[in-house]
């Protein structure tokens, strides 16, 4: 697909690199490929917009998202709803609150749950994965045992359906936004742990690890300075993709009524759940939060896929 100008640019780049170049690390090259990818740019724009919304939402929102300012205009029992209009861009919800303001403010909750739960899963999962991977690659016989024990435990977690696990955790801890974060985060732990361990195992068998061992480098340094950094690519991709799943799963848990008990606080999953009752009369009430969830999940997925391509070792020139 490369056009003539691309080829010329590439050539210029190659010739410029010869003597004066200071060298570019793989991360720098991956970033360059990422910037050149349309998928990454679109995904990045969506996420950027979403983040701005989430941060500025409460100040940008035209009305108070919890105030029933147009009480009387909406009569749910008679099937009277207010759709799009000049003062309420997305219409009013079933309690006569401004839907546009609720969507804007709701973005913050959704993003917060997505990020916090993914980071939780990443942190614990990566820690377990590192311990397990290090034990398996450089720990000898004892290390192999430790790795086996950890991995059987992780396999048990993986075998449980993720939503079921999340629901049980939510049921144990009670109804709150923290519960949703923990539940969604815990579900991600085994995924990150297995992924990092597998990647570390592949790196652990490589020649450069053997070479650093031959140099007499200490094992801790081999793991932290060589094996882990080289194993991170799939984890970074998974983190981005996980943000999408986390947002959907958080919405699903809220939809099931396990989220914030204060239904007045706008959250996309809760809004979706509440609109269900009136879907016949006012389908648009479900469409707005659903679109919000889909678009943000799409943004993260696009960026994740683009990163996968940018970091793929097979594409290294």
């Amino acid at each position: 697909m490369s056009t003539k100008t691309d080829k010329i640019d590439r050539l210029a780049e190659l010739t410029a690199q010869s003597e004066t170049s200071t060298g570019s690390s793989l991360w720098v090259e991956a970033m360059r490929r990422l910037r050149a990818s349309k998928m990454a740019v679109i995904g990045g724009c969506i996420i950027g917009m979403f983040v701005i919304l989430a941060v500025l939402g409460p100040w940008v929102a035209p009305y108070d998202p919890t105030a029933q300012l147009w009480r009387g205009e909406v009569r749910t029992n008679q099937g009277i709803f207010i759709g799009m209009r000049g003062e309420n861009w997305f219409g009013l919800d079933h309690l006569a609150r401004d839907q546009f303001s609720r969507i804007l403010v709701g973005a913050r909750q959704t993003l917060l749950v997505g990020i916090v739960s993914t980071l939780l899963g990443l942190a614990i999962g990566a820690l377990i994965g590192t311990v397990s991977g290090a034990a398996a690659t450089l720990g000898g016989k004892v290390g192999g045992r430790i790795d086996s024990v950890i991995m059987r435990f992780i396999d048990m977690m993986l075998a449980l359906p993720s939503l079921l696990l999340a629901v049980s955790i939510a049921a144990m801890l009670g109804q709150s936004i923290t519960t949703v974060m923990i539940a969604v985060g815990v579900v991600q732990i085994p995924i990150f742990a297995r992924l990092l361990r597998g990647s570390m195992l592949a790196q652990g068998g490589s020649d450069y690890v053997l070479a650093t061992r031959a140099l007499g480098v200490r094992r801790r340094r081999i793991v932290l300075a060589h094996i882990v950094p080289n194993s991170l690519s799939p984890v970074i991709v998974q983190t981005t993709l996980s943000l999408a799943t986390a947002i959907i799963e958080a919405a699903a848990l809220s939809y099931l009524g396990l989220g914030n008990p204060d239904a007045a606080v706008p959250e996309w999953g809760v809004m979706l759940a509440q609109s269900q009752k009136y879907f016949d009369q006012a389908p648009m009430l479900a469409v707005y939060p659903a679109l919000g969830i889909i678009i943000t999940a799409l943004g993260f997925t696009l960026l994740g896929e683009a990163m996968r391509e940018a970091l793929d070792p097979k594409l290294r020139s």
């Binding site: 020649d207 450069y208 650093t212």
Partner: peptide, 16 residues
């Protein structure tokens, strides 16, 4: 010390 067969594989790709 040791010199390896695969010159690229025996160098850490992320290390200058």
């Amino acid at each position: 010390q040791m010199v390896f067969q695969d010159p690229l594989g025996s160098l850490d790709p992320r290390q200058n």
